[in-house]
């Protein structure tokens, strides 16, 4: 019987995969995709809590909807920044983008 723990472990596994991708990758678009993976993992955890702990209140699903709104805004601005950086520097290698380093 699948229960709350199964969903939480699935969310933790997806979050860890996204964390590894965000820390270890050089391509800025892959880093953004890994961040999306982490947001999805958090959403799974919140919907699972909503389903198993308070099945009649749905607050977890509401939070998941707001996370999706913020994720959509984040992806739009993030990809715009990546394209702007690509225009100036001809690369999106995150290890070579050091504009704010002194």
């Amino acid at each position: 019987m699948v229960g709350l723990e199964h969903y939480l472990i699935l969310a933790a596994v997806l979050f860890a995969i996204g964390l590894y991708g965000a820390l270890a990758k050089r391509n800025a678009i892959i880093i953004l995709m890994s961040i999306e993976l982490m947001l999805n993992a958090v959403n799974i955890a919140m919907v699972a809590f909503s389903r198993y702990i308070v099945p009649l209140q749905l607050t977890g699903q509401i939070f998941a909807i707001f996370v999706m709104v913020v994720a959509a805004a984040e992806v739009a601005v993030g990809l715009a920044i990546i394209i702007a950086i690509y225009r100036h520097h001809k690369t999106i290698d995150a290890t070579k983008i050091d504009l704010m380093k002194w």
């Binding site: 995969i17 964390l19 820390l23 270890a24 391509n27 678009i29 394209i83 690509y86 690369t91 290890t95």
Partner: peptide, 23 residues
Amino acid sequence: LTREVQRGSPSNRLRIPALFVAA
């Protein structure tokens, strides 16, 4: 738009520490 497809998706120097942190 970024034509970074040819370079693929390499890892940076922090691959092993990142794997350790995630695990």
